[in-house]
Write a protein that binds this DNA or RNA. Structure first.
Lengths: 193, 193, 193, 193
DNA sequence: GATGAATGAGCGTTCATTCAT
DNA sequence: TATGAATGAACGCTCATTCAT
């Protein structure tokens, strides 16, 4: 079950494609295996079970968001700049990968409570970094120092998420990136207090 | 398939409980029937199939939100008051019915694309009413007249939704209603521009 | 369960239509009831169960064949004339009632062994009359006196039956009655020995 | 879905037994699987669905009739000899396999129209070969050159079929093979004209 | 007699997982 | 490691029959 071997990533990527193209419930293990070019049984040399594939998909892909956000925080000067770059990054990554957007915004949410609980655990790290930005902003006076961080974080993440989900549901018919400045303006106004 | 007979509502309510307690995929028709105190076959006198039960659950329950919001819009004086009351209503209805909250925020989202598309159609009416409030606010000067209504609506709904979902995922461990004033403050600040 | 009341015949006739138009397996009791213009439950005031309806259909309709054949035997002069008239009658009755032909030749044969055993019991009387004609022919020298009556009867009935079934399966696309003289010629040649 | 693997024939044979012993409607897939000594799911590696099993049963078994008849036609000298051998073969194959006789004469006829249409397509080849014999006989003067081939074919097949069906319905209580010479004599007389 | 709402047993099929090769 | 044939548990839906009115 070595997660560094090339076949591991090969299967994770195949899962994204299989789920995006067939839908969550139609992405049987055999389809993922076929897409990955391996036998059904081979999947089980790298993953404990199907649930493990799905969680790994999220983990691997979410990793990119966390890495990018870590860098954004390091390089950014002001909290507002950091928040702005975070939103841009979030929108850009998904705007550039429709398969991934479909999987994270629609398909993976059809998984059962257990899986989504685990997915939420993975998301935690990303939200922790967001909290960091918000707290810095409150301390430095860029954001309302009296606001509730949890609620503020939920506003930021909920707004971004809803935006992207709507775009996916509309089958990418408009340019997601055009919404970014509007989202930023509204959110920053909200946070300024 | 008469939707006015008492058994119709009886089954819809039973479905909410069965789904909340067992999870979407474990809420077999037989469990819903048992919960409703009717025979399995009786379900099919009132619903075309299982999918129809789920859509009806959403329809019936969402109906309350739409009715309440309609009244709120009629009675409210200012757009801000209307928005405020809408948020209060949304939080209160779900804070008072944990089963319903579980079903709408977690379980029903596991349904397949078809069902979710239909659920979205039902949601549309609610979002249209929200748009009404926002546009009135833009016209009257309460909200930023230059903002994008769609993005603003996504912020309001996304923030509310994310808040409630987090609360459900945390298994109702804190008081949802305490978040309402904070959510309102943040959102209204954001919309004011 | 009075079989003389008008509703009894009404339901039998409705069954023929319902079965002919929907097929044996799609002719649910509720469809037969609807076709007859009575409630589902009413069926059970006249018939023990669904099987009883089907057997009654055959019984009532077969009755016509037996009555006609009895008269043919009484009025006929020679065994060959009687056989000839029997074949004509058999073809004519079904050529005039496509619904009935469909039901007896195709649909009713989809019933289970039990029902078909009972149908065969009803058929017995008709075959007994046919035997009478054959035996008279053997005695009078019109037919081969050394032939096996059972086998001869099976030839006559099997040939008639196969002819009509093929015609039904070809959806009545040709004129069944044109085959009658040919069938008669072949059979009588066979029987003459 | 490889039809050459041993398990394919294994399941077809099991289906004949399961249907003969339980009746068409009581021969559930699970019973066929059990009889074949495989898991339920294995059935679906070799057959598209239950209907496909039934059609395959007929196809495989009818194949024997067609093969035998082809050989009979090749080896036979006169049309009468060929017809005679065909009847013998038809009777012998079924006299030697009561299960198969039950299935072809009684149980398979309970299938729905679709299946029976497909079964009829398979039967067509057998009837075509019979037609060949009849036409040769008409040409060579063994059979009445003025007879209608279709009607003649229906007499031959109908007589054979009715004979065997009666024997099955009488639960094999008499020796089917004793009827063969009688059937042949009657039919050949009929065809001679 | 007549109704029709309610009943509940019964089954074909899918698919994640295993394991002999 | 890798394979893929085989497994078998699990469930939505139909429809003949009943029975309170």
């Amino acid at each position: 079950m070595n997660r560094d071997k090339p076949k591991y990533k090969q299967i994770v990527d195949a899962a994204v494609i299989a789920i995006a193209e067939n839908g969550y419930h139609q992405a049987q293990v055999s389809k993922i295996a076929k897409q990955a070019g391996v036998a059904d049984g081979t999947i089980y040399l790298y993953f404990k079970n199907k649930e493990d594939i799905l969680i790994s998909v999220f983990q691997e892909k979410m990793g990119v968001f966390v890495e990018n956000l870590t860098e954004i925080i390091q390089k950014g000067k002001t909290p507002i700049e950091k928040l702005s770059n975070m939103i841009d990054n979030h929108f850009q990554v998904l705007a550039n990968d429709h398969h991934l957007a479909t999987v994270t915004q629609l398909e993976l949410r059809q998984s059962n409570k257990d899986i989504r609980m685990k997915i939420n655990m993975i998301l935690k790290e990303y939200l922790r970094l967001l909290d960091e930005i918000l707290i810095e902003g409150m301390t430095k006076g860029d954001f309302d120092p009296t606001m509730d961080v949890r609620v503020a974080r939920q506003m930021v993440f909920g707004t971004i998420d809803e935006n992207i989900t709507t775009w996916v549901m509309n089958e990418f018919r408009y340019d997601l990136l055009e919404s970014a400045p509007k989202v930023k303006k509204l959110l920053i106004n909200g946070l300024k207090g």
